[in-house]
């Protein structure tokens, strides 16, 4: 299954955010949308997930795709505990499965001890991790992440990226994410799309050919890419 974005147009009033935007994404790779804020990345992700209707054009992918979506904001229900928030997206499933999935996902984001807390009692970074756990538990066919590591400190970020990569290896969802951070992009992406806009256009596509396993241990292998990315900026 590949994903084709064909002739997408989307405007907010006078502002043309997407104008005849085309892109083909390969399912087997992790894609990263990299670019300045306001260039239309979030709009593109919303259109891809069907949250926003494009003015014209189409997204071609197999029907009935389930999205594990990590939003820019955590979007948790304040009247539910961490555990309940994650379990919410598993309503159709058997209780034993839900219990196991929720605990498993919470441990991936290192929040096992906070399952009974309400979101208001957590820090912003912790809430963001709950929303990541929710996406994991859902096990969508697509893992769409809009700045998932925003506001998280380095060590935790790396653990989370490792968790996401592990999850990806295990489930092989169609994965793409938005980031402003060069190191985040280089750490897990296979294809980086350098974007600018609006209207959004692809300035460059960079394929990272360093195996994931080496990126942590041999960061010098990423140096060239890093130079290129920072140069563009």
């Amino acid at each position: 299954m590949n994903l084709s974005i064909k002739n997408i147009h989307k405007s907010y009033g006078e502002l043309k955010v997407l104008e005849d935007f085309n892109l083909e994404l390969d399912k087997s790779r992790i894609h990263c949308f990299f670019g300045p804020s306001g260039c239309g990345k979030t709009t593109l992700m919303h259109v891809m997930a069907g949250i926003l209707k494009p003015d014209s054009g189409q997204i071609i992918m197999s029907s009935d795709v389930r999205f594990s979506y990590i939003f820019q904001e955590e979007r948790l229900l304040p009247w539910m505990t961490v555990k309940e928030n994650v379990a919410l997206v598993l309503q159709e499933k058997a209780p034993a499965y839900v219990e196991r999935k929720v605990l498993e996902s919470l441990s991936l984001v290192e929040l096992s001890d906070f399952s009974q807390y309400y979101p208001s009692a957590l820090s912003g970074g912790m809430r963001q991790r709950v929303s990541i756990a929710r996406a994991f538990a859902y096990e969508g066919d697509v893992l769409a992440m809009d700045e998932p590591f925003k506001g998280l400190h380095l060590k935790l970020k790396q653990n989370l990226m490792d968790a996401i990569y592990k999850y990806w290896v295990l489930h092989k969802p169609f994965t793409y994410f938005i980031t402003h951070d060069i190191d985040d992009a280089l750490y897990i992406a296979d294809d980086i799309y350098i974007l600018d806009g609006p209207p959004m256009k692809i300035i460059e596509k960079i394929n990272i050919e360093v195996p994931h396993e080496l990126r942590k241990t041999n960061p010098e292998l990423l140096m060239d890419y890093k130079m290129r990315l920072s140069g563009i900026r």
């Binding site: 069907g50 389930r66 999205f67 939003f71 904001e73």
Partner: peptide, 21 residues
């Protein structure tokens, strides 16, 4: 509305959205 968007992306049933949100 962002909560409702989230619920729709995660394909929660309408009855569930009403009851839980």
């Amino acid at each position: 509305v962002k909560l409702i968007e989230m619920a729709k992306v995660y394909q929660l049933k309408r009855s569930l959205i009403i009851r839980k949100i």
